[in-house]
Amino acid sequence: MIGSFVGAAANSVRLLLPALFPSWRFFDVIGPSPRIEVALLQTSDDAGNDWHEVRPRAERLGVAGYLRTFFFNARWNETLFLVTCAEGVIRDESDQPLREIRDRLRADLSRDAGGSAAPWFRFRIVLLSRDAGRVRRDVVFTSPAYTIADGAGP
């Protein structure tokens, strides 16, 4: 108990270090950019063939939209966090980013399903990059199947 608390505290301090000595290299190199896509499934064995980009961006933001998001931009900031998690999944850091994506997609799908009969979902990560002047797409990760209902399965 005490050991795990000390370990967690030490880990938090380690995570704080980049804030104390920041590198401040914003946008220096524009590397491959991950997108998360999701497919609804009837069974956990379905591979998924109807993929949709998660949280597609707005067509345009008007003055009211900009005013609102200047003060409250939770959804967009969470979307950017999902991209950070996708990068973590690609680097195979730990289970944490995978869980973050799963839980946030599960919340989205539970809210937006609107009576959809599909009880399962998978997500995949697609990397967009420039290749010989064109934008190419590579699927670099596909998740296991998860239940949409929290606690009803993996």
């Binding site: 946008f27 524009i30 950019s33 991950p34 997108r35 961006r57 707005a58 067509e59 345009r60 933001l61 998001t69 967009w76 979307t79 950017l80 991209v83 967009l128 990059s129 420039r130 934008v135």
Partner: peptide, 15 residues
């Protein structure tokens, strides 16, 4: 590249 394929542009109109 930022506007072409990065995740950051806030709307399709901006992209």
């Amino acid at each position: 590249d930022v506007f072409d394929f990065s995740v950051y542009p806030v709307s399709d109109a901006i992209r």
